[in-house]
Structure formats: C-alpha cells, structure tokens
Write a protein that binds this DNA or RNA. Structure first.
Lengths: 348, 348
DNA sequence: CTGAAAGCGCTTACAG
DNA sequence: CTGAAAGCGCTTACAG
C-alpha cells in the first residue's frame, strides 16, 4: 500500500496519514505502532524509535476523535458562562485553557446569557460532544444557573458562581483580600477608613465589607461610618464621594468595593480639589487594568487572580475525570494587592 | 437485551443509551433508527415516530464523536485569539458561538498571547481534535499570526486581524464608520472638527482618519488641523486635549479614535471648565459601554458590531466547510453610531 | 517483545 | 420501506 502523504492535496481534499500508514512505513503492526506512539507496552528502543520516525516523516497526527471513541473520553471540557461582557470570563478562560492545553485537553466556549433556552441548547451540544467535564462560571458568586442541571454523568466545577450543595467550587477569598487591602492602608498610617461598595444584595459586597470591618477592628480602630452599599458603577462612586464629603468629617482613606467605584471617587475628588493620596488614600478591587492604570494617580487594587482560579478549577476537574477523590466544597483562593500610587505608598 | 437506562448510576458510572438501545426499544434495525433520527431515508411516519419516542424515552443523545468519525467531520471549530484582555474577542466569540450553536457546531477557545510556542501547541491540539475549520482573531486589523500556518487542510477565516493574500477575512468598515460619525457631527451644526486618535502605526487609526477627512471635505469644510496621532489611552486623550486647547483656536467638536481617548479628553475638559457638548462635542469609537456610559455626559460612539462579525465569519466558515464557493478577500462590515449626549443631539 | 482481532457508536453504500 | 454488513481510526484485552 502506498503511503498517504500528509501533504497530498487532491481535489482540494487533504488526506491525513493514519496509524496504519505509520505502521506500514515502520513495518510493524498497528498495535505496536499505537503502543510506540503512546509510550505504553514494552518494546525495543529501536522499534519505538523507528515508529516515531515514521510518524514524524508522515506528519502523523493522532485522531483524537477515534481515540476518544474507544477510550470513552473526548479530552474536551465545556465552559459555560453568562458573562458576555467578558470582564471575569476571559481571564478565567485563558487560565483554564492554557492549563488544559498542556495536558492535551481543549475547552469548548459557550458564552451568552444564562437564559434557560440557550443554556439547554448549549448543554445539549456539549453532551453530544461528550465533553469529559464542565466548568460553570458567571459574573457573581451568589448566582448560579437558572436551570436545574439535568443528571449529566460528568463532573462539574464552579468558578466565580454559586454552586449547589456538595459541589466543587472556586471563588476568590473576598474577606481576606479586603482585610489585607485595609491592613495595607493601616500600615501606611491611615486611621479613618471608609468603605464604599456595590449593592447589599451582592454577596461579594458583604464579604468585602466584612473584611474591611475585621481589619479596622483588628487594629483597634473605629470603622469610619457604616459601609456604604451602592452600585458597582463609576457614577455611584462619584455620587457617594460627594455625599461622604458633604456629610462633614473626612476619612483619610476609602476602600472601594471595585475599581469602577474607585474611579468615580477619584474623579469626584479631582473636581473637588481633594488630593489623592495626600488627603485621602484610595484602594480599589478587581485590578481591572484599563481602569486601575487610568486613574490619576494610578489605582492600588486587589487582584483576584482569575487565571489561577480557572487553572485550579481545570486541574480539579481533571482529577475528578480521572476518578481521583476531590473534596467537595468551596475553595476560597487567595488574592493579591497590586500597589500603585493611590494608596500613598512612598515611592523609592 | 435490557435497556441501558440513561439515568442508571452504577459505581458512579453513568451509562448513556446508544442507538442500539433505541433501535431495540423501537423494534427496528440500527440502520432504520439512524435514518429516523436524522430525518433521512424514507419510511412510514409511524416508524419514524416510534423511533423518536424510543429515543426520547431513553433520553438518547447521539454521540457526535462516533458520528464525526464516520462522517469525517467533528462539528467543531477552533477560535484562536491573542486578545487575552478580551476587549474584542469575547464579543466576537459570543456572536460566533451563538450562531454555531444553532447549527450544532461547537467552538474551541484558545486564548493566550500569540507566542509561536503556545500557538503551535494550540494548533496541534486543534488538529488532533480534527476541528472542521479555524477562526483567527486578534486585537488589531494589521497584525496576523507570528507564524506561518502549516498546511492545515481545513478552511480558515480571519476576524479583526490581518489575513494573508487570498484568505477570507472580516473587519469593520472603519472608513465609513468614521465618516458617518463625523457626518453626524456636521449634521448637528459643528464646523471645526478635530481628530485625536491612536498611533500612526495602526491601520485602524489611518482608516478612521481618512473617514474623518473625507466627511469634512465632503461637506466643503476645512479639517481642523491635522489628525493627531497619539496612543489608544485615556492618558493620551487627556494630554492631547490640553495641547489642543493651549494651541489657540478651539474646535467645536472632536472625533476620537477610540473611547478611551474620548474619555481622557472629556475628563480634561471637565477640569478645564469646558462644557461637553455645549462648547465642544465629542464622539468616540468602540462603544465600549463601561467607558461610553461612564463619561459625563455619556459618550456617543461607533459600535463595530463585533458579535455580528463573529457570526458572519462563522457562517462563511461553515459554507467553506460544506464546500460551497466563498469569495476570498476582505469584507468590511458596516458599523453603527450609538448616539448619547456627548455629541450634542437635542433631547426630546 | 509483537500481532490478529474485537470493538467504541455511529453512518451509509448495497441489497432486497 | 427496511436491514445486514462494512468501516471511520484508533486502543486494548488476549494470545503467543
């Protein structure tokens, strides 16, 4: 049988070489070729090498569809997200997809709103593709899927989304992240630290407020007023900054629940002639660089390490797929504070 | 043979039903079951219905891996992007993935920098998965892949990236989008329209400048100075706004090459006491809502319709996969102007 | 150390 | 209108 040369281009059709071509060229059985290529079985180094050379000469690419059929694994994962906007999903997806690529696993993206209809469509597609597992991610840690997951017969992990009882999930450690950010301000000598954050209905807002509270009390200080629950927007940061200043006594620092609020606060202060950080230090949350780097001065902010969240979730999912025991529950992953100038750190 | 019930959960293993189970339950051959389910072949309505009922009772999901093996199609696409940041990619991916989901096609996401190493890794994975086609996207229309694509034997389309000669590619129609935006300003009575945009090295910046020029000249006006090439950042918008005002005569409108520049300009004007739009109208480009909605006043901006770009690219790719003739070349897709308040339109 | 054969779950000529 | 059989490209008991 003539080799099917992989670069052959007849009638626009590209014929890939198969393991049979490799076996024929190396003059071994298909069985041996398979084992040589996969590093399984025992055989002489010479044989293994001969097979590998043949594969390489033919530019052989194993067909993972065929492999998947017999091994009952597709080496694919599904990623479901409702964060069309991409603020959270793309970093998670990038970390996940990079970690998976190293292990020969590819990730199907299913972006869109979490509407029951489209969700079912996408889940159905992933079931038909026989994905080995599912990563479900969102844009807030207290909202999950709006539908009950049908019994899927595959492992699922949640990232930055609420998960049902007994599931494996990964979220940032909001409380400690907030605590560390506020500790940092305290370490820089700030004593009157206010907190402006998103809506009370968001769990993340409450956790960050708790971290703020705990840092302040841990240092033997009084919280500067109550946490101000508002909305996650610049406009609200702007308005709340005005309200805070008009209320009378000034804080010497504000820990903001996200970068957009921090941005609004800084803009308001600029127009009021309040200097950041000299008069009031500001720290944000998200480390969303288009915002954090664009404020004047650049914003110190908490980085949730979303790529790592995606990576960790993917690795846990792979373990589950391999049948290894994985502890259920919520994993709170550590965040890091990215220090820029808005917090008043001395530059060297 | 007993049906393998799809909800059976033995030793943690979930046994899906196969077409054999469906055939057995409907008391037909596997051949007939296949045809009934796919709507091919001719058979009595009664038979087809009986097969469908059996499939539904067993919660049968066709295994697209098995189907792919015989049909030599995987019903998957690969999406390659270097826009880790996600500004352009996620909208494109969402449009692509939604349009594909309706057709039973799933999309592999490969996000990361365009580093030759990781690119080869990802391409290799997609070849092994036997994707039916590839969508290559980026974050600027004049940069493509840093590696020569090996002969892949599969169709490729480019979106928001530069494409090799003879390829099929989709980009926004920057020239006309800019022209329309400036025409809008002219229609509102503005006569001295300046242009601040990104670096001269970016093709998009030159195209938008050309559109600005053409609109101004088309209306029999003089361009207000040369196009100001700068950088795509707020900081540069801010600085250029200062430079423009200090230079002497004021424009009555500025068309900005992106929303971040527009944001910087508006912020600078706010601090200078220049009123937008009363004194100077501003229009941006990208319609990136976190920016466009956060400026005071909200920003009128060009929307490139990225989801539609992804959608169109996917449909073209599907045609190519089906062997239909697809004209090579660059398709410039129309953009729309989203009117808010910064351009000075009268509110009703 | 190596190979012939069965089989993963489908589709599709081919035959009736 | 319906079915038996071959085959997509692999892996893996089983046998030697």
């Amino acid at each position: 049988m003539a080799d099917r040369v992989s670069t052959l281009q007849s009638a626009g059709v590209y014929q890939r070489s198969t393991i049979r071509d490799v076996a024929a060229k190396a003059d071994v059985s298909v069985t041996t070729a398979s084992r040589a290529l996969n590093g399984t079985g025992r055989m002489s180094d010479e044989t293994r090498e001969r097979v590998r050379a043949a594969a390489s000469a033919l530019d052989y690419r194993p067909n993972s569809i065929a492999r998947g059929l017999v091994q009952q694994r597709s080496f694919t994962l599904g990623l479901l997200t409702n964060d069309t906007y991409g603020r959270f999903t793309l970093p998670v997806a990038a970390g996940l997809s990079a970690a998976m690529a190293d292990r020969g696993v590819s990730v199907f993206l299913s972006a869109g709103e979490y509407e029951p209809e489209s969700l079912k469509l996408n889940l159905g597609a992933m079931e038909e593709k026989r994905v080995d597992g599912l990563v479900i991610t969102g844009k807030r840690i207290d909202r999950g899927l709006p539908i009950e997951l049908p019994p899927l017969g595959m492992p699922v992990v949640y990232v930055y989304a609420s998960a049902p009882e007994g599931a494996v999930s990964f979220v940032p450690d909001d409380v400690n992240a907030a605590k560390n950010a506020v500790d940092h301000l305290i370490g820089l000598g700030r004593r009157k630290i206010a907190h402006i954050t998103g809506p009370k209905a968001f769990k993340a807002a409450n956790l960050r407020a708790a971290g703020w509270h705990s840092a302040v009390e841990g240092a033997g200080l009084e919280p500067f007023g109550d946490a101000i629950f508002s909305a996650w927007t610049e406009a609200h940061g702007y308005d709340m900054a005005h309200a805070l200043i008009e209320a009378g006594e000034r804080p010497d620092a504000i820990f903001c629940g996200n970068d957009q609020i921090a941005r609004g606060v800084i803009d308001a202060f600029a127009l009021m002639g309040i200097r950041v950080p000299d008069d009031i230090a500001i720290v944000g949350f998200d480390n969303w660089e288009v915002f954090a780097k664009a404020t004047r001065p650049p914003l110190t902010s908490v980085d949730m390490g979303l790529p790592d969240l995606g990576r960790s979730a993917g690795l846990a999912l792979l373990d589950m797929i391999d049948g290894k025991p994985v502890e259920p529950g919520i994993r709170q992953m550590p965040c890091t504070l990215v220090v820029r100038q808005s917090c008043g750190v001395k530059s060297d």
